[in-house]
Design a protein around this nucleic acid. Sequence first.
DNA 1: ATTCTGACGTGGG
DNA 2: CCCCACGCCAGAA
Length: 109
Amino acid sequence: MENSGNFFEKVYEVAKQIPFGRVTSYGAIAKYLGTAKSARMVGWAMNASHNNVDIPAHRVVNRNGLLTGKFHFDGTNLMQQLLESEGIVVKENQIQNFNDVFWDPFKEL
DNA sequence: ATTCTGACGTGGG
DNA sequence: CCCCACGCCAGAA
């Protein structure tokens, strides 16, 4: 399982390190891993992370700050509620003050 | 084996 | 500023 590939494992590691009340983008993680063009794979990894409860996938959004994957969660607005529960303001599936809550692995990690 | 789509991002017109 | 196309990799039909 964990041998699915270093890439997925790395994504999980970074996602786990996302601080409370913060969010990051797929591209940021992908870039940090050196696969900036494979940002899609990051999302795919998140899909697999469904098995890993330790992965706060709700804290990962696209570079637009939009909750693109909110439909992949159990509920319709479960992702938004989780983010708001952390103090993040979300409006119409879009994170407000995105730059303020944005967590950059390059800068923070 | 082939084809398409998908939780994205960047670049060009 | 808005719209379109391309790249990337992996899994499903």
